[in-house]
C-alpha cells in the first residue's frame, strides 16, 4: 500500500508531469514565469488549491450526482481559490500584485479540474491527497525551472541576485515565454525517450476535462500525428 502512495506522489514530477507531459495549465505556465519567485508563488498557490479540492471532492464523490459534477467541482475549486487569494493578499501583497489576475484564474486551470475528474472522483481520500500534492509539486517544479531560465536570460538575475551582465530582455516578454516553453517540452520529450516513454503528443485540449463533450474536435484538431 505504501508503494501506491509513493507512486501517486512522485508521478507528477516527470512521468505524468501535468505541464510537460499532459500539457495542462499552459496559460499560467507561460504568463507568470517571468521570475523564479513568481513561479514558486504560483506553484505554491495552485498546489494548496489542488490538495484541498482533491480531498474535498474525494470525500464528496458518492454524494455529488454525476450530471452536475462539473459545476459542483468548479464551485469547490472556486471556494478554495478565493481562500488562497485572501490569504496571499493579506500576507504576501508583493506576490499578490505580481500574479495579478492569474491568481483567481486558478479556478479554470485545467490541471485542477482534470485531477478532480480523472482521479479524486474515483479514489479514496488519502490517495487523492497524495495525487493532488504530487501533481502540485510537479507543476511547481516546472514553473520554477521556467521561471529560473527566463529570469536568468531575460533579467540576468536569479532570485533577484545579479548573475549575468547582458540580459536579453526578450526572454521575460511574451515571445520568450513561448520559446522557452517549447524548448522545455522538447527537453522533457528527450528525457522521456531516454527512459523509454512516448513523447507528449497530446495538446492541451485532449487532456481537458470537457474534451469528450466537444465532439472529438479537439482530438482530431489537436496536435500533429
Amino acid at each position: 500500500m505504501n508503494n501506491r502512495y509513493t507512486k501517486e506522489l512522485t508521478k507528477g514530477l516527470l512521468a505524468e508531469n501535468p505541464v510537460l507531459r499532459l500539457c495542462l495549465g499552459t496559460c499560467p505556465t507561460l504568463a507568470i514565469t517571468t521570475s523564479l519567485k513568481n513561479g514558486l508563488g504560483m506553484g505554491a498557490a495552485a498546489t494548496v488549491v489542488l490538495l484541498c479540492s482533491n480531498v474535498v471532492i474525494s470525500l464528496l464523490r458518492r454524494v455529488i450526482p454525476d450530471k452536475v459534477r462539473i459545476p459542483a467541482y468548479i464551485t469547490v475549486i472556486a471556494g478554495f481559490v478565493t481562500l488562497v487569494q485572501m490569504v496571499v493578499q493579506a500576507y504576501l501583497p508583493a506576490v499578490y500584485d505580481a500574479l495579478g489576475i492569474y491568481l483567481p484564474l486558478i479556478v479554470v486551470n485545467c490541471i485542477i479540474l482534470g485531477r478532480a475528474e480523472a482521479f479524486a472522483s474515483k479514489n479514496p481520500v488519502l490517495l487523492s491527497a497524495a495525487d493532488g500534492l504530487g501533481m502540485g509539486l510537479g507543476f511547481t517544479l516546472t514553473l520554477a525551472v521556467m521561471g529560473a531560465v527566463r529570469e536568468l536570460l531575460g533579467a540576468g538575475t536569479i532570485f533577484g541576485l545579479p548573475v549575468l551582465h547582458t540580459p536579453m530582455l526578450i526572454f521575460i516578454m511574451a515571445p520568450g515565454g513561448f520559446f522557452v516553453f517549447g524548448l522545455l517540452i522538447a527537453a522533457a520529450n528527450a528525457l522521456a525517450a531516454r527512459l523509454g516513454r512516448k513523447p507528449a503528443q497530446k495538446s492541451g485540449c485532449a487532456g481537458c476535462p470537457a474534451a469528450h463533450e466537444c465532439a472529438g474536435e479537439c482530438q482530431t484538431g489537436g496536435n500533429d500525428q
Binding site: C23, I170, A174, P175, G176, G177, F178, F179, F181, G182, L183, I185, A186, N189, A190, P199, A200, Q201, S203, N223, D224, Q225
Partner: peptide, 19 residues
C-alpha cells in the same frame, strides 16, 4: 526532437514577436 508541440510553441513565439 522539435516535432509536435515544441515546434508549435516556437512558431507561436515568432507570431507573438511580430505582434
Amino acid at each position: 526532437f522539435l516535432q509536435g508541440l515544441p515546434i508549435t510553441l516556437i512558431a507561436a513565439a515568432l507570431v507573438s514577436l511580430s505582434f
